[in-house]
Write a protein that binds this DNA or RNA. Structure first.
Lengths: 157, 157
DNA sequence: GCTGAAAAGCTCTGCTA
DNA sequence: TAGCAGAGCTTTTCAGC
C-alpha cells in the first residue's frame, strides 16, 4: 500500500483494465506502448499499492431471469449507532442487494439497489427481509423501467 | 448465444468468477472440482452463450480522490421520445455517471449515480452538464455519507 | 526504468474413453 | 462430457543498457 506517483502510462493501463479486465499482459502492453515485462511490473505495483481493488466478471442479468431492479429508500425508526449497525449487518447478507448507502439530502436514511427476478420475488424480499425489521420506519420503492447506463468504471482522468 | 442448460458446476464457476474475475483457469478448475480442460471449455461456452457479459477491473476510488458519490433524481420537462433520447445520449458521454435508470414510483423520471472528487466538482458537474439542459425540470441530490455495500455480483443462485 | 531472451507456467485443442 | 498429453502462448525473471 505504498504511495505511488502515477504517470500517463499507468493511467492508460488502468483505463484499459477498467473496461477489459481480462486483457492479457501482452495485449495490454501493446495497447499502452510498452513491452510485456515493464507492463506486468506496473500492474503488480498498482495492485500492491491498492489502486486496483479487484477483478470481477460481469454477468448478463437477463440470462438469469433477473428482470427487476428496484431502488429502495429506507427510513429508520431510531438513529442510534446500534440500530444502524444492526441494519447494515443484515443488509450485507442479502444477495439481492447490490448497493447500500447511508445518505443525506432526502427523507430516507439508506438507499438500496436491489435485483430480483420479478415483482413476486420483490414482494418476498420486502416481506421476508425488510418489513420484518422492527427498526424500519418507512420504505419507498422506485422501479427501474430502463437501464440507460451501468458502468463499473470510475472517472480517473 | 445458444441456450445452455447450466448445472451445479456452471453455477459454481460463475460464482467464483463474479468475485475473482482474474482467477487462472487452473485455480478455477480446482475450486469447482474439475480438471483444467473441461473447466476452460465451460467458461468459453458460458461466454459464447452470453451468460458472461464481460470482465472488469475495480479501482479504489479513494486512491483517486473520488470521495463524493451522489444519487441524483431528475425530472424532465417533456416526455416525448425525442426529449428522453436526447437526455440519455448526453448522459452516456458523462464519465462521472456510473448509473442511469429510467424509473417509476417517484416524482423523478431518471435516477443517476455520480462519482466526483468533492463538492466543488459536483457543483461543476451540475452547472456544466445538467442545468444547461433545457429539458430538465427538476433535480434532487442525495449525498452518500457511507458506502455500506457495493457489489457487482448478481444473485444467480 | 526499459528491452530482450530464456525458463517456467498456463491454456487450449484433439484424442480416448 | 471428463481426463490426458502435447503444442503454442504467456508471464516472469534476469542481464544489459
Amino acid at each position: 500500500m505504498n504511495e505511488l506517483t502515477l504517470d500517463k502510462i499507468d493511467f492508460a493501463i488502468l483505463t484499459e483494465l477498467q473496461h477489459h479486465g481480462r486483457l492479457s499482459n501482452q495485449e495490454l502492453a501493446q495497447k499502452v506502448g510498452l513491452s510485456p515485462s515493464p507492463c506486468s511490473r506496473r500492474v503488480k505495483a498498482l495492485e500492491d499499492a491498492g489502486y486496483i481493488a479487484g477483478y470481477s466478471t460481469l454477468l448478463n442479468a437477463e440470462h438469469f431471469n433477473l428482470a427487476l431492479t428496484v431502488y429502495i429508500q429506507i427510513r429508520l425508526e431510531k438513529h442510534t449507532s446500534e440500530t444502524l449497525e444492526a441494519f447494515e449487518k443484515d443488509i450485507l447478507n442479502y444477495q439481492e442487494v447490490q448497493e447500500c448507502s447511508l445518505i443525506t439530502g432526502s427523507e430516507a436514511d439508506y438507499q438500496l439497489k436491489v435485483l430480483v427476478k420479478d415483482m413476486q420475488n420483490y414482494k418476498l424480499f420486502l416481506l421476508d427481509k425488510l418489513t420484518v425489521n422492527p427498526n424500519i420506519a418507512g420504505i419507498h420503492s422506485s422501479f427501474v423501467l430502463k437501464n440507460v447506463k451501468s458502468s463499473t468504471a470510475i472517472p480517473i482522468n
